[in-house]
Write a protein that binds this DNA or RNA. Sequence first.
DNA 1: AGTTATACATATGTACGACATATGTATGGC
DNA 2: GCCATACATATGTCGTACATATGTATAACT
Lengths: 239, 239
Amino acid sequence: MQTSLEKLRPVEHLSQVDKIEMSLQEYLRTENFQPGDSLPKEMELAEAMGVSRTAIREALSRFRTLGIIETRKNRGMVIASPDVFNNMERVLNPQLLDDETMNEIFEMRLVIEVGLGDVLFLRKHNADFSILEKIIEKEEKATKKIDIVKYDIEFHSMLYKLSGNKTIMRFQKMLRPVFDHVYAKLSENTEAFAGNIPEDISPVTHSDLLNTLKHGTPEQFRNQMRTHLMVYFKKLSTE
Amino acid sequence: MQTSLEKLRPVEHLSQVDKIEMSLQEYLRTENFQPGDSLPKEMELAEAMGVSRTAIREALSRFRTLGIIETRKNRGMVIASPDVFNNMERVLNPQLLDDETMNEIFEMRLVIEVGLGDVLFLRKHNADFSILEKIIEKEEKATKKIDIVKYDIEFHSMLYKLSGNKTIMRFQKMLRPVFDHVYAKLSENTEAFAGNIPEDISPVTHSDLLNTLKHGTPEQFRNQMRTHLMVYFKKLSTE
DNA sequence: AGTTATACATATGTACGACATATGTATGGC
DNA sequence: GCCATACATATGTCGTACATATGTATAACT
């Protein structure tokens, strides 16, 4: 009963600005606005919809927040092509997410890195290997736990970069705080890892991964990455 | 030279509301606000920061848009736990994305579905198979192209669902419009697919995937999914 | 006493009017 | 023709007033 009520509540006490927002959204869609097109002036919109400029501005402010429009002083407002992930980033910063979502996002990371093999092989260039080699070298020389973690993260980040897919890269960059948070939480758990960094006790090293990337196949890479990250899968699945 | 200028431009003509937004963001972080906590009144914030209530409200409106806060008439404002993907969804609706981003998002889908194997095997239950079987049955009976596409999408959507990861599911649901768009564009390309649905000419069928999910291993599933989606990888990589 | 009804206080929502600021455009001087 | 200045215009910011809804205290009633 409660759930069904919650379903229809949002449409009921719809604020006026909410309605304006929807109306404008509809307007943009039906008029088929494209990035670069300019919108009517605030006053014109206000008069057309029979509301004050204040209310219109608040709705427009939301669009500005989402990156759908951009405004400049005398030029008016123009449609922009929004950066899909920019908004998520702002939401993630305050770290308001509950643990379940965090774990799910971390699991998504695992899924992506395993599946990343094919794209990596599609776009790998010999020049890239040296970068990974240098990171591995630094990692092996490192003694402090904090450094090992740092280079570990650097290695995985570089893989995203080498995927050549800017959106995937952006996605990783954005979710890094979440990754790090879950990662740190798992690392702290000395029961499971005996104080070691999780991947330190993994049967597959970064060096192995690089080697496979050089001379192996996508399939081998996927399997190795799966094994490399196995410790996380095990940990997450038991919760 | 131009690039370096563009780099610092954003900080220059930072609107006052932008500054307020950052300031509030900082405030929320340092004061360690948790979901459910209530914020000071608008007037208090305005006075504390030495700006008008209008400006504060516009900044707060952004937070409301992003789902960081919720406001009720006399109760004031409280911190909410934002739905990470809700904002992206609103941005995606107007379909303002450029082709490159679309393709990259589609590629991300491929990466995820290949990597999804492990999670699926982790959480698979026998009861789920019957659902997939029914979809495959309907798909095989279908004759119209539009129906085949429909059940094809349904099958893949169900896999996301069976992953048991609500965040991944949410992600797929949100990006579905993009998937469909790229998918439709590729399907239209009669040169590459001779009028067939891409996956129709794939050497691995949905039935094969289900069978592997039932009796196979995650590794086999990954490989089969990779082969199943191969046609897309080929198509995307040549662009 | 406990419950309901009413009135009041309060915080957000909306509106209007004024001025600030920055950008585009026209005018005038050289 | 070019440059500087002045003006027009659209967004940005502000202050005030009032509307609306929620919470709270007071009063009336059974």
